[in-house]
Amino acid sequence: MSAPDRPAPDRSGAARPGAPDRDAPEQAYTDFTRSLSYGDYLQLDTLKSAHRPVTDAHDEHLFIAVHHVSEVWLDLIIRELRAAMDQLALGITDAPLKGLTRVVRAQEQLTNAWEVLKTMTPADYLSFRSAFGQASGFQSASYRMVEFLLGNRHAVLARPHEHRPDLHGPLTDALHGPSVYDLTLRLLDARGLNVPAEVLNRDPSQPPQLNEAVLNAWITVYRQPDTYWDLYELAEKLLDVEDNFRRWRFNHLTTVERTIGFKSGSGGTSGAGYLRRALETVLFPELWEVRTRL
């Protein structure tokens, strides 16, 4: 008896003669003239139409695919960060952990993407590098938004988007708004942990600097986790985010070094040298220093 004709078992496990086999592929929907198919729902034709190599080089396909996928993950990270920040602004500490955990998992996918790109040799890359001119990941508005939301801020980083008000406007708003860490410090102060006014009211467009009073507040949290469990857990989750942020940057650096060495980047930076300096960025300084002071 062929698989499609095999009777489906009843609850006892015995097959009922004449009953259709519910496990057969013929039971799947196949007529989508009046309903959404998988491809329709995901707009796959539109998605794939954006994949347009400008040369015949084999590895340009890989290069574009990795960057397309990375941009999708970055947009998800932005969405989850904003949702978590909205909750933190309302004084909620537990619900944001779910969104931040999702951020961490998405960051892992971003970091793993470099492993695929590392299969491209220097000769492979040079076969199409000149074709995209000054285009560079330095100009990724989504990556820059992630940086701004996490607190790594320099006004010059928004300049490549001045020609696009739809991109530059939101970046400027994020540059001058509170970061996820700023919102966390407001929660510490609301809980009576005495964050100084100069920290709470600082210019958010500047990167954070280690503050002894803030550090002492975190020392209290880390020495009394039972009392401040929600803040303790939030701090550790933020550290997960920064840890993965550093890993992404490190993998970016090593990918660039093994592909083009210390040639200048296509976007005008020094390339590997610029990326190496970026590794020194610290987003949440007190959360790292607290380990030394405990």
Rank of each mutant, 00 (worst) to 15 (best):
D56M: 04
D56N: 02
H58E: 03
D59G: 08
E60L: 04
L62G: 08
I64L: 11
A65S: 11
V66A: 11
H67P: 01
V69H: 07
S70H: 12
E71I: 01
L74V: 02
L74S: 12
D75G: 11
L76N: 01
I78H: 03
I78G: 07
I78D: 13
R79G: 11
R79M: 14
L81P: 08
L81E: 07
R82C: 00
D86L: 10
D86I: 08
D86E: 14
Q87L: 14
A89T: 01
L90E: 13
T93H: 10
T93E: 13
T93M: 14
L97Y: 06
K98L: 15
L100Y: 11
L100W: 08
T101R: 04
R102Y: 08
R102F: 07
R102N: 07
V104E: 03
A106G: 00
E108T: 12
E108C: 03
Q109T: 04
L110Y: 15
W114I: 00
L117A: 14
K118P: 00
T121A: 07
Y125L: 04
Y125P: 15
Y125G: 03
L126F: 14
L126G: 07
S127A: 15
S127E: 11
R129G: 02
R129M: 00
A131Q: 13
F132M: 12
Q134R: 12
Q134F: 12
Q134S: 10
S136V: 05
G137N: 08
F138D: 04
Q139S: 12
S142D: 09
S142E: 09
Y143N: 00
Y143S: 00
R144P: 02
R144T: 13
M145E: 10
M145G: 00
E147W: 05
L150E: 02
R153K: 15
H154E: 15
L157R: 14
A158Q: 10
R159V: 01
H161K: 09
H161G: 02
E162D: 08
H163G: 12
H163V: 13
P165F: 14
P165V: 06
